[in-house]
Design a protein around this nucleic acid. Structure first.
Lengths: 143, 143
DNA sequence: CGTAATATTGCAACATTATTGCAATAACAC
DNA sequence: GTGTTATTGCAATAATGTTGCAATATTACG
């Protein structure tokens, strides 16, 4: 079982308190994301949590995970945010700013796609991230 | 000045009334989109309209334009929808389901990028559209 | 041109997703 | 254990988009 604290960076002990705390809410969200290969929306995470957690807290945790590089965020066709744990490839600095995803037009399920995403060049602008969203009907919905 | 009615297909006169009507609201939205090279959100279109048009009407017109292939929709990082008129390349059937866009992380401005977008293959799934969203800081915001 | 049919609009209310302020709680360093 | 403060929960609010329905305006056609 993936534990949240493995993500805590090694740092010298602060005088008073830690900057990040390992809470059961965070651990719960990690576990849910870990158990599902699909990217999940805040509501989906909330549904799948055993623990009773406030909706706002889930939003905050997911946002935080994205900032810390633990998870990445994808925006679906409906404008909703979906989150998935970053893969090992992510951590290697290879994938972390270049993701490809597939979303079903019908059921809205969204999953990561292991694709080679190149970073194109643009005049006058430095591109920081590249997001590719493929759409169509998933296996279940096209059957 | 691009006129909406140019998009009306040639069809035999229906018994009673047309299926599409050319209204000043639609024409206004067309004009606004035409005058701006950036993709615009519903609110931005509303702001730039000379004519006083209801918010809901703008939403409906933009949605309609997308369905009719007059405009295409892009979802920004914040989950908002942006619309831009389809280019000629679009109509040729080359670009219409494969768009690339750049959005500024700071000012959220979003524009089309003339890039070659390939349609990748995925097992068990038919990909209907490919959307590439590049992000970074635009010229103005990075200065 | 006038008229009838109906596509379209405007309005009000509602839905969904996400954010903010703040007091209460709980995790961590010591 | 205790103090500090990161984190949570709650309530309220914001932002974006949607729905139902009556009023309006466009179009085909005589």
């Amino acid at each position: 079982m993936l534990q949240y604290y493995v993500f805590l960076p090694n740092r010298k002990a602060p005088k008073v308190a830690t900057e990040r705390r390992n809470t059961k809410q965070k651990q719960g969200v990690i576990d849910v994301l870990k158990e599902h290969k699909e990217a999940l929306s805040a509501d989906e995470v909330l549904d799948k949590l055993d623990l009773k957690v406030n909706r706002v807290t889930v939003y905050r945790i997911l946002e935080r995970f994205e900032q810390e590089g633990i998870a990445h965020r994808v925006v679906g066709l409906e404008g909703k945010s979906y989150y998935a744990l970053c893969s090992d490839a992510c951590d290697s600095g290879h994938h972390h700013d270049r993701h490809a995803h597939f979303q079903c037009k019908s059921c809205k399920s969204l999953r990561c796609v292991d694709a080679e995403v190149i970073r194109p060049k643009l005049d006058n602008v430095k591109i920081e991230s590249v997001s590719v969203l493929l759409t169509g009907l998933c296996e279940s919905c096209s059957a």
